[in-house]
Amino acid sequence: MNPQAIRNTLAVVLVTLCALPAPDAPAYAQFAPLLMPNANQAPRPEPADRWRLEFHDAADSDGIISFRLWVQEESPMHVDVPIRKGESDSEIARAARDALATRLGERYAAVVVGGEDIVITAQRGSPRFTVELLRDTARDVDVDVDRD
């Protein structure tokens, strides 16, 4: 077999393997880290002093909610919040609050409001920031991210 035929055959095999579903894999396993956009190449959204994250509905599957945090003059940070099937929106909000507060540190306050919302506020003298939702692989969980 000539080298071109071997390359063509390998290409067909690789494309076929990539298209096969992984039936027993958890929901978050279907997103390979290679497919996530490079955080340093994405345009930086407009920063604010307060952001509100709203969580709606209980999780119908395991998954991950991923956020990107941009603090002015700093590199972006990623925060992954693991979600378990059956967790309520208030449980998801508390888990997200804990993960975000740990990552942001004392310069920012993350507080659960109304049971299923999180308000993140820059403390006095802290730089403005942006919160982006990168992905949400837990079925039936909706996340809204807005300036507050």
Rank of each mutant, 00 (worst) to 15 (best):
F31D: 08
A32S: 14
P33I: 08
L35K: 11
M36T: 10
P37E: 13
N40M: 12
N40H: 10
A42P: 01
A42C: 08
A42H: 04
P43W: 14
R44Y: 03
P45W: 08
E46M: 14
P47H: 03
P47E: 05
D49V: 09
D49P: 03
W51Y: 12
R52A: 09
L53N: 02
F55G: 10
D57N: 15
A58M: 09
D60E: 12
D60M: 09
D60Q: 13
S61D: 04
D62L: 03
G63A: 02
I64F: 14
I65R: 05
R68F: 01
R68W: 02
R68S: 11
W70I: 09
W70G: 14
V71L: 07
E74A: 13
E74T: 13
E74Q: 15
E74V: 04
P76H: 12
M77Y: 10
H78S: 13
D80Y: 06
D80S: 14
D80H: 13
D80Q: 15
D80W: 05
V81I: 12
V81F: 00
P82L: 05
P82V: 06
R84E: 13
E87Q: 15
D89K: 08
E91L: 14
I92Q: 02
A93Y: 01
A96Q: 03
A96K: 02
R97V: 05
R97Q: 12
D98I: 11
A99S: 13
T102I: 09
T102K: 13
R103P: 03
E106Y: 10
E106T: 11
R107K: 11
R107N: 13
R107Y: 05
Y108C: 06
Y108R: 03
Y108A: 07
A109W: 01
A109P: 01
A110H: 02
A110T: 07
A110D: 03
V113L: 07
G115L: 07
I118A: 01
V119W: 00
V119A: 02
V119C: 00
I120W: 00
T121H: 00
A122E: 00
Q123H: 11
G125K: 04
S126Q: 06
S126M: 04
P127S: 06
R128C: 01
T130R: 08
V131C: 07
V131A: 12
E132Q: 15
L133D: 09
L134S: 14
R135V: 04
R135K: 10
T137E: 08
A138T: 00
D140K: 11
